[in-house]
Nucleic acid binder design. Sequence first.
DNA 1: ACTAAATATATCTATTTATGATATAGTGTT
DNA 2: AACACTATATCATAAATAGATATATTTAGT
Lengths: 109, 109
Amino acid sequence: MPKDLTPAAFNILLCLAGEPMHGYAIIQHVKTSTEGRVKLGPGTLYSTIKRLLETGLIVESDIRPDDDDERRRYYTLTSNGRKVVQAEAQHLERLVKQARNVKLLRGVA
Amino acid sequence: MPKDLTPAAFNILLCLAGEPMHGYAIIQHVKTSTEGRVKLGPGTLYSTIKRLLETGLIVESDIRPDDDDERRRYYTLTSNGRKVVQAEAQHLERLVKQARNVKLLRGVA
DNA sequence: ACTAAATATATCTATTTATGATATAGTGTT
DNA sequence: AACACTATATCATAAATAGATATATTTAGT
């Protein structure tokens, strides 16, 4: 029974579900895609990445573009990581439906 | 600028957006409405309620049914609490859309 | 070439949250 | 009376987050 993801972990996995990415790119991707609402600091980012590696939800990959910045470390979702982030997304979807049911959001439930 | 809600705080406010409720009822409501996926323990519940009272997102109300259990303490959303939970719901809605965009969920974005 | 800003990862401490156990007591059922 | 359930509350611990600091590389401007 996978206990559910912290907000930081979910945001990171959501990025990686799009494409493999390195840490710094994740910070910026989260920042722009949420229009500044979510700011991952380095402390949260790297400690969460460490945890995600330990729990096998992501792995480091050596695939990278030619002439890429050597410092970058790329991460990809594992198949289990994908399952877990998908389950969390479904959970959030249900919460959003509930929010509609109590008129916090417009539209049909 | 209201920093965003913790998962526990969001779940509690989402309950109260439906109707005023007392603590123990919130625990059970969250449990049943999430089909057991979210379990609020007493530690998380009461410390989060305390915080929500301090930040003015909820207030205690003395309105209760006749012959109700005296021990119960009912809470209601303040207008600011409603605004904050609504903003968080909108944020979650965007995350769900992103999840659809990367094919973690089915359906149209 | 020199400089400054941005990129990139990593660690550390402090603060904030979450968890689970324990405590206490009222209520309802058999 | 005994028991399970309801109801709130606190405590100690553990986990997660935030923000500062450190270090080094890369890129852009002058």
